[in-house]
Design a protein around this nucleic acid. Structure first.
Lengths: 149, 149
DNA sequence: TTAACTGATACTAAATTGGTATCAGAAAAA
DNA sequence: TTTTTCTGATACCAATTTAGTATCAGTTAA
């Protein structure tokens, strides 16, 4: 059971990458090389993020993309939703009428509880938080290997 | 993002069905009709449950399957693991060496935390619990529609 | 005017999903 | 003892999804 597919994975990594750049437009080529994401695949992913307002784009030479929101305002759930749809138990949930199968409904009830929990937890994880974590890890590492003055 | 696939869904429903039968062997045909699960598909699912010890089987006429454990000892996680594998973030986790991509690792760390939470929650949901929930729902319904004496 | 970009979209191979079909053998019942 | 009811094992299949490629058109800066 894979939680994140490649699209979501690459999207999150790209967003982190963008969130760590101070200013200006970053081209898909740069992100592709930096994160080792296949260029054409990444382009499609970025276009989807653009359509959903998570990133902004500028065409032409010197153009590229940048975050369309504050890093803290982009939750991992948002990204999951774009590429994998809302977390759901099974397609049964789409049926309007109450599921005829009682046992299944009981199961669904339990799982919906867990679903809510997962969504809550995932939305706490924002791009901003991931960047903060990342910086913390990196500063710890530089402490460890610090040169004597 | 579908949490449960058909195999898991049908498996859980079958286990509930078996857990509610008092004694004896139940044939795949009966479960198939009772739960509206395609017969051949169900057979394959049951065989997998048998291989994993969740149900026992008896060949020949009058044979069938029954639970191989107490309902309370079968967690939904067990079933998910059989049909969808352990909950994991991405195949990256299978790589032995620490992932070269720091950003990805940070994300993974967060997600592993959520993973643990999900697994904890799912393992609390046992077939026994689902059956209890089911009976509670059913008794509530019969109260509502109770005939006057 | 050309090089560096995005927008849009069509295509593809491989894997997964959900389901079907078949044949062999065990056990109960006729 | 033969038939019927069952599981064991496995091979097959179509549709969908996943991950990735390719192409062409248009935009902008140098």
């Amino acid at each position: 059971m894979k939680v994140l597919n490649k699209e979501t994975d690459y999207a999150v990594r790209s967003l982190i990458s963008l969130g760590m750049k101070p200013e200006g437009w970053v081209s898909a080529k740069v992100i592709s090389e930096e994160q080792s994401i296949p260029y054409q695949f990444l382009r499609r992913i970025l276009q989807e993020l653009i359509r959903n307002g998570l990133v902004l784009s500028k065409e032409g030479a010197g153009g590229g993309v940048k975050l369309g929101k504050e890093p803290d305002e982009i939750g991992v759930t948002d990204v999951i939703e774009i590429f994998q749809g809302k977390v759901q138990v099974s397609e049964c949930m789409f049926r309007k009428k109450i599921c005829s199968n009682r046992a299944n409904c009981v199961l669904r009830h339990e799982i919906m509880r867990i679903e809510r929990l997962v969504n809550q937890e995932f939305s706490k994880v924002t791009i901003g938080k991931l960047i903060a974590d990342l910086k913390a890890v990196e500063s710890m590492r530089s402490q460890q290997t610090k040169q004597p003055d």
